[in-house]
Design a protein around this nucleic acid. Structure first.
Lengths: 230, 230
DNA sequence: CGACCATTTGATATGGATCAAGCGATGTGG
DNA sequence: CCACATCGCTTGATCCATATCAAATGGTCG
């Protein structure tokens, strides 16, 4: 009855795609198209809440412009940022019924909003959409695993990783225009603003980077940063 | 054409199920059944490798008995444990083509092994299987997010979380028989064995726990531990 | 220009790591 | 069955990376 003959190789239509080597944006065709056709564009101001944790996860979101952060505030008041989402990226996908993290606009942002029920009905008709949802979840998992591994490293390794990740995601390979504050970076990396700032100055002294403005970072010697991470 | 009318509520057949409140094991029916019917039972000795990172992820695994750990060794030699898998739990599900973590038996274990291609062909025929795979990925994501949040907490909070998590997963609410060593616990929590040991003695002094044997932990006052975590 | 907020820099404190014994359990060979 | 070796765990002493506290600097907007 059920044999493995039909689908022997790994790149089956029913297994999620591996993350592309350089991800400009999440390459979801059917889902991306649904966003363009049926998504409602909504503007969010700087620091405005997009959704709160424990709220029902009734929507899926795609960043058009600006940056979005997801985060969780612990009892002691500390905030852990789960991820930053840049233009083209989809967020708000949750396994359960409720959001685990909250989401806010880091800077003024435009976001396409699509009802989860719409996505669900699309997935019923089109297996490609269903697979894309799975792929997206898998990619979030990989991202979170990578983030987790960051948190056991030294401050210099964390900051270097962050800079290289951002340089890769934005398309300028050697210059990064950061939309987030030092506090955002610190809360993403599990450090304090002081440590992030000191580490950046250290990188500057070592000529690994230049800081023409505090949110503009030039990677003068990415190799120095790369040998820190592993 | 495509409306949201058909599937308005959240518990659609095409959206993954939320994690059950108390998860004895992953409640996958079609997938679990496939494991029982078509999975090959394989014994692994203590510390034996089940798969290595960068190996192609060609199989899915379900623990029958014993405990499994997934981990990654960093360049500096430190090891980060990603997860422990107990009987009934499924592991080895990867978004990409290759494993990101390695897997080993913590103690002698029996594991059901199922070819990924078999699962893929099942998913083609049966949407329920496809959805279960997605649900499983989503649950791994939630678990990893929770783990990530642990790593920014104090030593006491991390150890308390670990004990409570284990007590919940094993079915004895007030006594835990740990299969893993202090080194395993330390590498899961991002601490050293010394710190784990000291924290346990501290809990013992505070009468929060008792340690009749080093791998047997009695939760004498779980409330004390619970107020630590958040 | 002046007020405000973000960032940097400096001084000090501290939680957990590291280094180093000591101890207890488990297993093996005589 | 005991002596001893081994391994894992605990305990102690010290060190260090990063946090914390505090002040100075710089950048932005009315």
């Amino acid at each position: 009855m059920l044999t493995q003959a039909t689908v022997e190789n790994g790149s089956s239509h029913y297994w999620p795609e591996p993350a592309p080597r350089r991800r400009l944006s999440v390459r979801s065709h059917a889902l991306g198209e649904a966003f363009e056709r049926m998504g409602a564009p909504v503007p969010f101001g700087r620091n405005e809440e997009i959704y709160g944790e424990t709220e029902p996860a009734n929507y899926l979101y795609k960043v058009i412009s600006g940056t979005v952060r997801t985060y969780k505030v612990l009892i002691d008041g500390r905030r852990q940022i789960g991820a930053f989402y840049l233009p083209g990226e989809i967020f708000g996908l949750e396994a359960g019924e409720e959001h685990v993290f909250s989401a806010e606009a880091v800077v003024d942002a435009r976001v396409l909003v699509l009802k989860r029920s719409v996505v669900a009905s699309l997935a019923i008709r089109d297996n490609k959409v269903a697979r894309e949802l799975w792929t997206l979840t898998g990619r979030e998992l990989q991202r979170t695993q990578k983030h987790l591994l960051l948190l056991i490293k030294t401050a210099a390794e964390r900051v270097a990783s962050f800079l290289l990740e951002m340089a890769e995601r934005i398309q300028c390979s050697d210059e990064v225009e950061l939309s987030m504050s030092r506090q955002d970076i610190a809360d993403y990396l599990g450090l304090t603003i002081e440590t992030v700032s000191r580490t950046l100055t250290q990188f500057e002294n070592e000529s690994a980077i230049a800081l023409p403005a505090c949110k503009r970072i030039v990677l003068r010697n990415p190799a120095v940063l790369k040998q820190l991470i592993a």
